[in-house]
Design a protein around this nucleic acid. Structure first.
Lengths: 157, 157
DNA sequence: CTTATAAATTTCAAGCTTGAAATATCTGTG
DNA sequence: CACAGATATTTCAAGCTTGAAATTTATAAG
């Protein structure tokens, strides 16, 4: 019934993994909060709206609701509400899919494309500024490890 | 009026920083979602409640509302609601601060301590499992870089 | 003492997020 | 055709989150 005792090294790795998670979460939250703050203050905009428009901007032919929610890893119902708002504001629209009346394709309007282009350019500069403390070696080192981590997490489904 | 042109190397670092941010966010979100899912399924619990209890568990003498919100980097109003809920359920309580009628100290009840102890132990094992794809070198390498990143972010306030 | 300012907390409206249930539509099988 | 499942989306209630305004209490200056 008892678990085998952990060696010192195993305990150490385990504790270090917990510390890593807390630091990963902290760094990620700090950056995300800063982006939210700037989007709000500079553009009176929100991150979810930015994210949905970003997905749509990369797919000029349009995306199904379910494709957007998969890309952003959020629920379907969530996307419904955000696309509703974007549509009301004339930034996106739903287009019928020929041959499937269940689905529709969401596209940015020309107005939506213009608004997003402005936001995206500034957003990229913000990230560059916020991460300016990391040099090329740091960036590459972290990208590699994060890639492997995400792969492992997505496999383990 | 024009910005100086970026060299190839500068562009490259800038683009890599943006990629890093997207990967950092992705890894962090995958882990966080998995933790939320397990808390919900195994304990019918939420991450905000877990986080508040975790802060309280580390401070047996109690924490002021504002101390909790600073530690968790969330708003004061947020903590009000969560502590209200925990109090209703008999897991935490507000204690008057002698000499300052504006503030109160929040403490875990014995019941709250027991509930949290159970959750915390399992939580730590989850993190170890979720991050099992990272070896000791990965973990240490990332911790160092994330520390420097967070320091830089917090300085830049 | 009075008053202005600061500090601690709560309240509130608006928006995000989820999972589950409900609708509507398709698709393959008999 | 009928119909059992699979798909695509929406609806909904509950909970989280924020920033700003409001409330209460403390503190310092005159």
């Amino acid at each position: 019934m008892n678990e085998p005792a952990l060696t010192g090294a195993e305990q150490s790795v385990s504790k270090a993994r917990l510390r890593l998670w807390l630091k990963l979460l902290k760094a990620s939250s700090l950056i995300e909060d800063e982006i939210r703050r700037r989007l709000r203050n500079e553009f009176n905009w929100t991150l979810p709206r930015f994210d949905v428009m970003s997905a749509l901007a990369r797919s000029p032919d349009g995306l199904k609701m379910s494709e957007i929610s998969q890309m952003l890893r959020v629920s379907n119902g969530n996307i419904t509400g955000i696309v509703d708002k974007l549509s009301e504001e004339g930034l996106a629209l739903r287009v019928a899919v020929p041959g499937d009346r269940r689905a529709n394709l969401v596209r940015l309007t020309p107005k939506g494309q213009n608004v997003f282009a402005e936001h995206a350019e500034v957003h990229e500069a913000w990230i560059d500024e916020i991460l300016s403390g990391l040099d090329s070696e740091d960036v590459d080192g972290m990208i590699g490890r994060l890639d492997r981590l995400s792969e492992a997490l997505e496999e383990g489904k």
